[in-house]
């Protein structure tokens, strides 16, 4: 599903990722961890094509960054749902419109959108917040809206950058439960986090990064 081959990303003169190699199969549930500045967010950005590798090749769902045409980028991104570290919700739109946007971009009709948005909101337990604006929601609620927007288009890959960063233990557990449900339906999931509690004793795969290097690839 996702393959990194000798991938290096350098910002100005700061090497965020250095010769990284790994592969993730379809339906896998993988954690990416490491200290702050290790390169976790950069790795996810490379996957959803917000960044380009300086060296090496990334393959995503059958596409290769080497040969990818710019006009194909939107269509590739539709296969990837992203829970951004900073949410990236539209402040002047309701919860409903924020989630519906992902489907409008894909050209869905309004009736279909309505059903899907309601399903996504139900999954994250926020059906009653339909008409609220993001500013009227708590951090944890905003995070769940972001998750709902990421999954509403039924992507094959779901990326989440510190999805429990703003949450208490109970809420974090709730969100992890949602991810497991989505994963159970066959979606490949990558979660970047420095919260080791999330994967401790789960038996799930964890990629450890430090200072831009992939230092370990083992079970949590």
């Amino acid at each position: 599903m996702i393959g990194f081959k000798d991938v290096t990303r350098i910002y100005d003169n700061m090497t965020a990722l250095r010769k990284v190699n790994f592969g993730i199969g379809k339906g896998e549930f993988v954690y990416i961890t490491g200290p702050s500045g290790a390169g976790k967010s950069t790795l996810l950005k490379l996957i959803y094509l917000a960044e380009k590798p300086d060296e090496g090749t990334i393959s995503i769902a059958g596409w290769e960054t080497d040969t990818l045409r710019e006009s194909a980028i939107p269509y590739l991104r539709r296969n990837i749902g992203v829970v951004f570290q900073d949410f990236k919700l539209l402040v002047n739109r309701t919860v409903y419109d924020n989630i519906a946007l992902a489907l409008r971009i894909r050209g869905f009709g309004e009736t279909e959108i309505k059903g899907r948005v309601q399903d996504a909101l139900k999954l994250v337990g926020l059906r009653h917040k339909n008409d609220n604006f993001p500013a009227a929601l708590s951090g944890g609620e905003q995070q769940r809206i972001t998750i709902a927007r990421a999954i509403v288009g039924e992507p094959t890959v779901l990326l989440a950058d510190e999805p429990t960063g703003n949450l208490d233990v109970d809420n974090a557990a709730g969100i992890m439960k949602i991810f497991k449900e989505i994963n159970a339906k066959g979606t490949t999931i990558l979660i970047a986090t420095h919260n080791r509690e999330l994967f401790r004793n789960t038996g799930l795969r964890v990629l450890w990064f430090d200072n831009g290097n992939l230092v370990a690839d083992k079970e949590g």
Partner: peptide, 15 residues
């Protein structure tokens, strides 16, 4: 800012 988000969600240039 909104347009950047549109792009990340998979909007085409035409959209």
């Amino acid at each position: 800012e909104e347009i950047e988000i549109f792009k990340l969600l998979g909007a085409t240039k035409g959209f």
